[in-house]
């Protein structure tokens, strides 16, 4: 008997969220140090904690590395087109309001090409849980800048540094009507999971921004050596401020070490949902 066989007992190989992941699709496409796996893990735990049968959960994503999330969760899942995850999800949520529909996608997908759908889904207060994985760049296509890239950060399409003012996503989500708004990082595993659970229990539009390292594309171009390095930045600079009122002041500047990164559950209001 080999050492491995002695150590791994069959019962020990079953992880509590194994049945919520499509293990038959592993190995996944994500790079070492990528934060997306942690987000999928948090979503799976929130499904398990939701008390709803997994048959009542649906996951929709757009295009990009984050857009692959839908392919790894073992619920009814749809990998739609670039930017269109939200209206696709709206169709599901409106036709079958009994389903708990979560959109997991990236910052470029949801706020650049899909930005119009984001503001209108929030305005309508459609019962959707949006998990926006913000890694500050287009990772899958090799590190181009986008509407979340900090000013000065480098990307392959801004080799001398980004010059455009990035979005402050929680501020945008609140201003356009989201009923629940949070920002966490993949360091804040428990807090993120709890925010997803709160989003699932909210009849209305929930928006969770979650910061995630992209060492291969963003980190390499911006002297953030590996995934751990970026998580270390989160640890050093994140300030938790639940219920923060001054969202307009809570821009993120990952590059400027002097600026704090404010995270927390910022907004939790009752608004008339799209479908009561």
């Amino acid at each position: 008997m080999s050492a491995t066989e002695q150590i791994i007992h069959p019962a020990a190989t079953v992880h509590p969220i194994d049945n919520l992941l499509r293990a038959d699709r592993f190995p996944h496409i994500l790079c070492p140090g990528c934060g997306i796996g942690t987000v999928i893990h948090g979503y799976a735990h929130a499904i398990a904690a939701s008390g709803l049968s997994e048959d009542r959960h649906v996951c929709v994503s757009g295009i990009g590395c984050s857009g692959r999330a839908a392919g790894y969760v073992n619920v009814d899942s749809y990998h739609s087109t670039h930017g269109r995850a939200l209206p696709f999800a709206l169709g599901i949520a409106v036709h079958k309001p009994e389903l708990n529909v979560t959109v997991i996608s990236g910052d470029g997908d949801l706020t650049a090409i899909g930005g119009n759908h984001l503001i209108h889904a929030a305005r309508r207060n459609v019962n959707l849980n949006v998990i926006c994985i913000n890694n500050f760049n287009y990772g899958m296509t090799g590190g181009q800048v986008g509407p979340t890239t900090p000013v000065g950060a480098k990307g392959s399409t801004a080799p001398r540094g980004a010059v455009e003012q990035p979005f402050n996503l929680p501020y945008l989500a609140k201003a356009t009507g989201a009923a629940f708004v949070a920002r966490w990082t993949v360091l804040h595993v428990r807090e993120f999971q709890d925010a997803v659970l709160r989003a699932m229990n909210k009849n209305g539009f929930s928006f969770i921004e979650v910061l995630a390292p992209c060492p291969t594309s963003f980190g390499r171009a911006n002297n953030i050596g590996d995934g751990l390095h970026e998580v270390e930045i989160y640890r050093e600079r994140c300030v938790i401020e639940n219920g923060a009122q001054n969202l307009e002041e809570l821009d993120i500047d990952l590059i400027d070490a002097s600026k704090p990164i404010t995270v927390g559950n910022f907004v939790d209001i009752d608004r008339k949902p799209f479908i009561e």
Binding site: Y78, L86, G91, H95
Partner: peptide
């Protein structure tokens, strides 16, 4: 996109 999503839900 919405009508395709609704179709996915039946």
């Amino acid at each position: 996109a919405a009508i395709i999503g609704a179709s996915a839900a039946g």
